[in-house]
Amino acid sequence: MTAVSVRSTLARREARRFHLFVSPWLVGFVLFSAGPILAAVVLSFMEWNLLQSPRWVGLANYVRMVNDPEFWESIENTVQYGLGAVVLGVSFTFLLALLLNQPLRFQGLFRTVMYLPSVVSGLATALLWINILHPDYGLINKLLASVGIQGPGWLASQEWAIPGLVLMSVWGAGNTIVIYLAGLQGIPKTLYEAAEIDGAGWWRRFWSVTVPMMSPVIFFNVVTGFIAALQSYVLILVMTEGGPGNATMVLGLYIYRHAFVYFDMGYAATLSWAMFVLVIVVTAIQFSLAKRWVHYEFK
C-alpha cells in the first residue's frame, strides 16, 4: 500500500467512527426536531389562529414583518439587552469564578450561595427584582439615596428599564460560573509552574496561561450567552410586559404575544425565523472572530 492510500483508509475509518458516535444526536434530530422545524417553516407562510385550519398566504407574513415598526423596535431592544447581558455577565462571572476557585475555607458554601439565584423559581425572582428596582422603595435606590445620589426610575423609565433587566440577568448567571469553574480545573498546573520559572508575574500568567487555556470555555459562554439572551422573555413578561411604552418589548416577548395572546401562529412563526436569523448572524460573527483568540489543543 502507498502512504496516500493508508492515510485515506485511516481517514475513512475515522469518518465512520465519527458518524457512529454522532448517531444518537443525529437520530434524535431527525425524529424529534426536523419535523417540527419544517412545520414551523411551512407555518410562516400561513395564517392560523389554532382553531380554524391554516390558510396559505404566501409571503404576506414576511412583507408585514418588514413593514412592522414594532418589530424593528423589538430587534433594537433585543440587541441592546443581549449585548448588555452578555458583556457584563461573561466578564463579571469570570472574575467571580476566579475568586471561587481560590483554595479558601468555606469554598463549597460560597459557591452554593452564588448559585442560589439560578435555583430560585422565575416568579420569585421577578417579584424580588420588582422590589429591588422600585424607584422609591427599592433596595438599590435606597442605597444610592443614602450616599446622596438620586437613583433612576429603573423599570418605570424608558431609558433605565433595559439596564435594570441586564442587572437582574447578571445576578442570575450561576450556570456561567459553574462552567468557568469546571474549565479552571482543566488548566495544567505545570503551565503555571513553567511560566513562574520564566519569571512571569500574575498579570502575565493570567493573560498568557489562564485566558488562552480558558478561551474555549469563555467562547462557549459568549456564544450560548448570546443565544439565551437574544431569546429570553419570560422574566421580562412577568416584570414589565414590554413596557414602559415599548421600551422592553424584546423579540421573544413580541413572538410570545403574537403566538399565545393574539393566536396569530403564522406571524409568530415568521417572527421566530427572524429571531433565528438574528441569532445565526450573531453566532457566525463570533465563530469568525474566534479564529483570532480561541485556542484549541486539537485543530
Binding site: 475515522e14 443565544i227 431569546q231 433565528f276 445565526i280
Partner: peptide
C-alpha cells in the same frame, strides 16, 4: 474525530439551539 460532514453537522447542532422553543 474528522469527517467531511462534521462541519455541517456541527452547524446543525448549533442551529437547533437557536430556534425559539415556542415555535
Amino acid at each position: 474525530l474528522r469527517a467531511r460532514a462534521a462541519g455541517i453537522m456541527f452547524t446543525a447542532l448549533l442551529a437547533t439551539m437557536m430556534i425559539p422553543r415556542e415555535i
